[in-house]
Amino acid sequence: MALTAEESGRLAALLSEHVDQVTQRWTETVAASLRGRLSQVELRSQLQELRQAIVTTAENGIVDLDAEYAAELRAVLAELSRGRARQGFSATETAISVFALKEVLLELLESHGGESTLRDYVAFSALIDTMGLFTFESYVRTREGLIADQAEQLLELSTPVVKLWEGVVAVPLVGTLDSARAQVVMERLLQTLVDTGSPYAIIDITGVPAVDTQVAQHILKTVVAARLMGADCIISGIRPQIAQTIVALGIEFGDIATKASLADALRHVLRLTGVETTRRSRRGA
């Protein structure tokens, strides 16, 4: 919603003639809504910047958020929303920073406005609404970006592949496995087999509360893929409920080695590779 040239002029005049009053009232109104989670000084400088951006836009032409010369105004608004989103403020708290300008302008218009007061206020309000919506959208975009980043980080964090012995790697899976995560884990496991030249892998699912058909299929496919590459997989730590699910779903584990615990699986692999483990006290018996 764009203002007319005269309205733009009057808005710029109001904002630049009463700098102190505008900044003061604006800061107070916003600060009350943020309940002290942002310092007055920081808030004041942000709002001053925003006020200046509106005035600058008005000097370049009419105040229109879509105009090319309003790039600075858009940038200031976007920066404000990004900051709020990162600091964990809610969408409402973010939008209020902009909407509070309405109250400030109303007070100013009441004391200084002329005959066009009402029409000006309606026009200014519409402009501020547009700015508010723009802020809201930037806010949502930032949050979406944050969520996507975190999801990726979580995926990275939750999928360690560890070396247990020379030629033996293990993936201890913890938490719910969805299809996407299962895929990432499995790709990483196979890559680790190549990187470390390990012919044995143990997939430990002690920490997995439930397995559905898709996840079971992913695990099975990984075992087959590892075989194609020349490595063997052992699955350990299958809980009783999961064993029941696997059977109930009719998933064939075929000749894939399964062991009760990670320790059993490691012992099994060591035996296969010809490593003998004995207790010291039994030596010479």
């Binding site: 790709e187 196979l190 087999l193 190549v194 496919k221 893929a225 590892a226 194609l228 590459m229 020349g230």
Partner: peptide, 14 residues
């Protein structure tokens, strides 16, 4: 003996 199959190739073959 076939050696050096890449993970992505193995996954695709499966």
């Amino acid at each position: 003996v076939v050696v050096g199959m890449r993970p992505a190739v193995a996954i695709t073959l499966v």
